[in-house]
Design a protein around this nucleic acid. Structure first.
Lengths: 183, 183
DNA sequence: TTTTTTGTTAAATCATACTTGACAAAAAGT
DNA sequence: ACTTTTTGTCAAGTATGATTTAACAAAAAA
C-alpha cells in the first residue's frame, strides 16, 4: 500500500504542515510518518484514521486504490452499454466503462411509466446519489416515500432499504451514482 | 474501526463463504477473521487489501466511514445551495448537503457561454465523473481536448491536470460528481 | 558562522496482528 | 435417535511489524 504514503505526503504539504508538526498533532513520532510516507512502513488502521482526520480527509480518500490511467474516459450518449433490467420496465445504462478501480459507478436509469423496482430492498453498503432528469420518480427510504421531480436530487446510504417507482405518464430518467461499484 | 468488521461479514455472507473458506483463500486463520468481523481485532492494511480482493470489493468500500443517517436527504431543484465560482461565469451548486462522511460530492455546474476554468489544473487525488445535461463543454485532460455534448459523460482521476470550457452559445449544464468531497 | 529546523535511516522495543487449540451450537449424515 | 462434520467464538500464546529513540546530514534561518 505504497499509495497511502504519497497521498499522505501531498495532503500534508497541502496544509503546509511539517513532519514534526503533524506528528505532534497525532501523538506519534515524526520519524514514523516519514517511513509511512516513503512506503517503508505501513500504519495501523487506527492511526491511519487519525492521520486522515488530522489532514481533513477520509480514510478512503487517502487509500485511493484506483490510479489506473484510463484508455478512453468518454462514453457518448449513443454508445452507452445496456446493463440489465433492475425490474420490469426499468433499464440501466453504464455512464462509464466498468473498472474495479473506480470508486463510483454512474448509471443512467430509464423507467417506463408505472414501472417500479419491486420491494427489492437492496442491502449493499455504500452510498447512492440520484438526480432526476426527466419525469417524476417516487423513492422510498425506510418506508418514507419521497417524490422527486426533474432537477431534484437525493443522497442516501445503500444500507437503508430503498425502492423506486415511476409515477407519471411519461418515461422517467435519472442519473444514479453508486459507490462502490458492485453491480 | 468497527465498521470494517461488519462490512466484511456482510460481504462474506453475500458470497456464501464460510469463515474457514475465506481464511483459506487468504492464508490467515479463520479465528482471526472472526475477531476482525466482531471488532475484537483490526487487520493490517495489507491483509485488509487481501480481504477486499478476495471479496471483490475495494478497500475503500469496506471501510465506508460514512454511516451517518441523514436528516433530510433531498435537495429540491429550486433549493440548491450556491457554492462559489470556479472561474468567471462558472457557477456551482450543491446537489446534496455537505457532510464529511459522504464519499461523493455531487455538484451542478452552470457555465456561461465562452466561460472557462482557466489553466487551473486541479491536483487533488480522487476521481471525477461528469455528465453533460445541456450545451457543449470542452474538457481538457492531460492536454487532450474532448468535446462533450448533451448526454456524453466522462470519468477520470483528479490527479491528471484538467480544465474545462463552454464552447457553444448557450449556457451549458453538467452534473459533476467528485470523490472524495474536498471542496 | 552558528543555531534551528528540516527529512531520513538503523537499531531497539513493545504493542498488537495473528495463530493455536479447544469449545459449544448448529447442520448434515446414517 | 445419535454420531460426525461444520459452523462461529474465545482465551492464551507467539512473533511480526508498528512505533520509538537517537543520531545523522542538508537546508533554512539567525
Amino acid at each position: 500500500m505504497k499509495i497511502v504514503g504519497v497521498n499522505i505526503k501531498s495532503a500534508r504539504k497541502e496544509m503546509g504542515l511539517t513532519l514534526r508538526g503533524l506528528a505532534e498533532k497525532l501523538g506519534v513520532s515524526a520519524s514514523f510518518i516519514s517511513q509511512v510516507e516513503s512506503g517503508k512502513a505501513s500504519p495501523s488502521l487506527s492511526t491511519l484514521k487519525n492521520i486522515a482526520d488530522a489532514l481533513g480527509y477520509t480514510v478512503s480518500a487517502l487509500i485511493d486504490d484506483g490510479q489506473k490511467t484510463e484508455t478512453n474516459p468518454i462514453v457518448r450518449a449513443n454508445e452507452r452499454k445496456y446493463l440489465h433490467e433492475a425490474g420490469k420496465g426499468m433499464n440501466m445504462y453504464l455512464l462509464t466503462s466498468r473498472d474495479p478501480n473506480k470508486q463510483m459507478e454512474p448509471l443512467l436509469f430509464k423507467i417506463k411509466e408505472g414501472a417500479d423496482s419491486g420491494a427489492a430492498s437492496y442491502k449493499h453498503f455504500g452510498q447512492e446519489f440520484v438526480l432526476v432528469l426527466k419525469g417524476a420518480i417516487e423513492i422510498t427510504l425506510n418506508d418514507i416515500a419521497y417524490i422527486l421531480k426533474k432537477g431534484d436530487s437525493i443522497y442516501f446510504n445503500s444500507s437503508v432499504p430503498h425502492a423506486f417507482k415511476n409515477l407519471g405518464k411519461e418515461e422517467a430518467e435519472a442519473v444514479w451514482v453508486v459507490t462502490p461499484p458492485t453491480f
